[in-house]
């Protein structure tokens, strides 16, 4: 999985200049500040970042699932290739319009951290999967039930026929997460957005869910956007990684690029800050200071307030342009600007 496939033109999703702000009592908060990214067919794009990085907001916006007080800048573009081959501009759809609803769930599916809240407590698991299937596919009730049971089986839920009749509260956290994946996949989406899907799970269950997602991706050939703050998880699942900080992408590259040869000071610092088994007992290198409040975003490079290699008078003035270190590896940092290929 770690090897990106070659056909770079075959992008399922292309996001350009995405800028999202929120109107709040305290003023306008810019959560995502002009980012570009793309997802290739059949690949997993990992987005890693800490709180306030805008990693969730940027992806939820693809499905237009942001709260009412959000504003997507009008110069933003989210191009998605539908199953029919047609490329559509997601920002142009009316919120909750018909076409958008069809894409949502049918072609782009979402799983997230808290599996309990994604299910209605008053219907059985089976019922809810069936409903989703019936909504997006032209099948009879009987067939939908078969698809649902089959899906439960595929995500590794034992006794799927019996689980079919159970209510969400009767399942454990891991089971619910599997069931949520079953719902998401029953519509056969071409893009799955997984927002911290394993964060609230125990390690053994997390490992199983990650394995399951890998397997299903190989079987179904879908693309995945995997959002997490956990570098270990991302190293295991992603083909490509975007590192986000305060609403900006600061570095992007293949998983190997990012993990083995991080170039942005933030990426480097993050990798040094996590405790790792190969460095038991070594002192961790913390990143000084706090993540700035989104209300008082630093000017220039968002990381300059905490950066150990800050160039005064440069980093705090303007945002660095992208520097292409190789075909796959891009960094946004003044330290690397002259190395552009």
């Amino acid at each position: 999985m770690a090897n990106p496939k070659q056909n770079t033109d075959d992008n399922l999703l292309e996001v350009k200049n995405l800028k999202i702000s929120f109107k709040t009592d305290e003023g306008i908060i810019t959560a995502v500040d002009g980012i570009d990214f793309s997802v290739k067919r059949g690949q997993t794009l990992g987005i890693v970042g800490e709180s306030g990085s805008g990693k969730s907001v940027s992806t939820w916006s693809i499905m237009r699932l942001l709260p009412k007080n959000s504003i997507i800048d009008k110069n933003s573009s989210i191009k998605f290739q539908r199953k029919s081959g047609k490329v559509v501009e997601m920002t142009k759809f009316k919120k909750n319009g018909r076409e958008l609803r069809k894409i949502r769930g049918g072609e782009v599916a979402l799983i997230f951290q808290e599996p309990m809240s994604s299910f209605s407590p008053v219907y059985t698991i089976g019922n809810q999967i069936m409903e989703a299937v019936l909504h997006h596919r032209d099948v009879t009730k009987k067939e939908a039930e078969e698809i649902a049971v089959d899906m439960l089986d595929r995500v590794g839920i034992s006794n799927p026929r019996q689980r079919f009749k159970q209510y969400p509260y009767e399942l454990s956290g891991g089971m619910r997460q599997r069931a949520m994946i079953a719902v998401a996949l029953s519509m056969n989406p071409s893009l799955l957005i997984a927002d911290e899907p394993t964060t609230s799970l125990d390690v053994t269950i997390q490992a199983q869910i990650l394995e399951l997602m890998n397997e299903l991706q190989e079987d179904l050939g879908m693309s995945i956007i995997f959002i997490t703050h956990n570098l270990g998880v991302i190293a295991q699942v992603a083909d490509e990684i975007n590192v986000m900080y305060l609403g900006k992408i600061v570095e992007r590259g293949t998983t190997k690029d990012i993990i083995h040869e991080p170039k942005h000071p933030y990426t480097q610092a993050l990798l040094k800050a996590i405790p790792r088994l190969d460095r038991i007992g070594e002192r961790l290198t913390a990143i000084r200071g706090d993540i700035p409040s989104p209300l008082s975003r630093p000017t220039g490079c968002p990381f300059y307030t905490r950066c150990g290699k800050v160039i005064p008078g440069v980093c705090d003035v303007k945002m660095p342009e992208s520097t292409h270190l190789s075909d796959t590896h891009t960094v946004y940092c003044f330290l690397h600007e002259e190395k552009d290929v």
Partner: peptide
């Protein structure tokens, strides 16, 4: 089982989690 499930920060080391049957 716990140790096998630790996701290592290294794309070259694939996880091989031990499968535990059932639930706690």
């Amino acid at each position: 089982a716990l140790m096998s499930a630790i996701p290592e920060v290294n794309p070259d080391q694939e996880m091989n989690p031990v499968h535990l049957a059932g639930e706690i």
